[in-house]
């Protein structure tokens, strides 16, 4: 059984921050995407002013610089994620994608986490377990295009709609939020239908619907990925205290 100081279930930026901040750690996600909230939601299309996160963390700054090297100086969430993953690998963080958590046994001295993976059941031990994974989303991002239209109504079919710029200037992100979390595909279908109704009258259209929705309490827009990452870093320090 592999043993870790920290096991984080869910692989969002907060999780990566925790995992990157020290100790031997593992990041576990049932999806085949590292940080599905970003990789799967188009949130990377929203400009994130890196300079706002003038972090005191030398580590974080070096990771951002590394990611900007990959993209010729542009901020790009997948680039940042891959650099985070690379960094995590350098300091000994393992990544386990496609892994379902079957059970977590409370420890005598260590937690035993039973996972279902492509190798069947595997067990890992961890001194600390942080569960960040959320099953049901309430918000879906759509990439939309059209003349610079505005939203006349911000609520359609019981769903809240809001617009933000995407870094490709001709496109924008239309975020569609349901009052309660619901199953991913049902939410996406509802969001597409509602958005389509609004956009049709404005000579605008949906370019793409993000494959995955996200839970708005953890909304990528709330603090930004880097802030989330830093919160993780500092949480881990607190845990260690």
């Amino acid at each position: 059984m592999k043993e870790y100081d920290l096991a984080v279930i869910g692989s969002g930026f907060y999780s990566l921050g925790l995992a990157s901040a020290g100790g031997r750690s593992v990041v576990i996600d049932p999806h085949f995407l590292l940080d599905p909230d970003f990789a799967g939601t188009f949130s990377g299309f929203t400009p994130t002013p890196c300079e706002e996160y003038s972090s005191e963390s030398e580590t974080l700054r070096s990771i951002i610089e590394r990611s900007e090297c990959m993209t010729g100086g542009r901020f790009n969430v997948p680039a940042l994620e891959s650099c985070l993953a690379e960094y995590a690998g350098e300091i000994g963080t393992d990544v386990l994608l496609g892994a379902y958590t079957v059970k977590i046994e409370p420890p005598s001295d260590i937690h035993v986490i039973t996972l279902h993976t492509s190798a069947g059941i595997i067990e890992i031990g961890a001194k600390t377990v942080v569960k960040r994974q959320r099953h049901l989303p309430d918000t879906v991002n759509l990439l939309v295009r059209g003349a610079s239209f505005t939203l006349d109504e911000d609520e359609v079919d019981g769903l809240s709609l809001s617009l933000s710029d995407a870094y490709s200037r001709s496109d924008r992100i239309l975020s569609v939020r349901a009052p309660l979390p619901m199953e991913n595909n049902a939410l996406r279908a509802r969001a597409i239908r509602a958005a389509s109704r609004v956009l049709r009258a404005k000579d605008a259209k949906i370019i793409e619907c993000a494959p995955l929705g996200f839970y708005s309490a953890d909304a990528p827009f709330a603090g930004g990925p880097l802030a989330d990452f830093e919160r993780g870093v500092f949480s881990w320090r607190e845990m260690n205290v």
């Binding site: 990789a39 997948p78 993953a85 990544v95």
Partner: peptide, 12 residues
């Protein structure tokens, strides 16, 4: 998992 993460990164 490593192969998938690497594949995502390579595309950039």
């Amino acid at each position: 998992s490593d192969a998938v993460v690497s594949a995502h990164a390579r595309k950039l």
